[in-house]
């Protein structure tokens, strides 16, 4: 276990391994995304109550699931970088923030579009939507804090603290928003039961959830590679890489 831990702390090793993972993971992910989307869009039956609009589920739910998981990835990476002073964890945390924000945005946007035919309105202050919105703010806060520092090392430490504070708060926010919604519920919106989802609709959904997890991993690795290059730009191995890449 320890050798791997040490290797993870080595930028050239991580850069190379991320590259070789991406070489096969990225095509597979894109293939899975296309397959899942086509399957969900064209080859499944429409839902009994919502009709065809339910097909948005194949991007909405995976994006929401991964957006939440992404915050934990970011916060855990932050914790590792604070506790063990591992610089590469810091890189992972910095890379995760914009990706997570983008996934949260996808979840919110597709949710709003889905709301129009289902509930008759673009936006509802429902518990889950509201906590997703707050999650979006938390992600943007981390991005904004990172950009505000000139000293990038301090920036990532500060972001690590902030994302840990956010992680402690996420369950509290989630529970309190849930409670708040129960207090104010207007009884105008009825959610259709989710457990009744048919297995023929379930398989493409599971595929899409897997694909979105893989996509998050890919984006994380892609961003980490750029970040590593930027941080290590003074070192010999990066210079060698640059001269090799620049040659036609």
């Amino acid at each position: 276990m320890w050798p791997i831990f040490h290797k993870l702390g080595s930028p050239p090793w991580l850069y190379a391994i991320a590259g070789s993972i991406l070489r096969w993971l990225l095509p597979i992910t894109l293939l899975a995304l296309v397959t899942g989307a086509v399957w969900g869009l064209l080859f499944t039956q429409p839902e009994r109550i919502q009709g065809n609009s339910y097909r948005i589920i194949y991007i909405h739910v995976p994006a929401a699931v991964v957006a939440l998981a992404g915050y934990y990835v970011m916060a855990l990476a932050g914790a590792v970088s604070l506790i063990w002073r591992m610089k590469m964890a810091d890189v992972a945390m910095k890379a995760a923030a914009p990706v997570g924000a983008a996934f949260t945005f996808i979840a919110l946007f597709t949710g709003a579009i889905w709301g129009k035919p289902t509930w008759g309105t673009w936006w509802v202050w429902d518990a889950r939507i509201t906590s997703m919105l707050i999650l979006f703010f938390l992600y943007l806060g981390v991005v904004a804090l990172y950009e505000a520092f000139d000293n990038k090392e301090a920036a990532s430490k500060a972001c690590a603290v902030l994302s840990l504070v956010g992680m402690v708060n996420i369950p509290i926010i989630y529970k309190s928003v849930d409670w708040w919604y129960a207090l104010h519920q207007g009884a105008t919106i009825k959610f259709t039961g989710e457990s009744s989802i048919d297995s023929s609709m379930m398989y493409p959904l599971l595929l899409m959830i897997g694909a979105f997890y893989a996509l998050f991993t890919c984006c994380l690795l892609l961003n980490m590679r750029v970040e590593i290059l930027q941080r290590e730009s003074r070192t010999q191995w990066v210079k060698k890489l640059a001269t090799k890449a620049g040659r036609p």
Partner: peptide
């Protein structure tokens, strides 16, 4: 999509655009 296409297709296209941006930018 029996009238729902105007919701489903924009949702998918925005998602594709965001994903493309996420992959291509880095």
């Amino acid at each position: 999509m029996q009238g729902h296409g105007m919701f489903v297709w924009p949702a998918y296209s925005v998602t594709i655009a965001v994903i493309a941006l996420l992959v291509i930018t880095p």
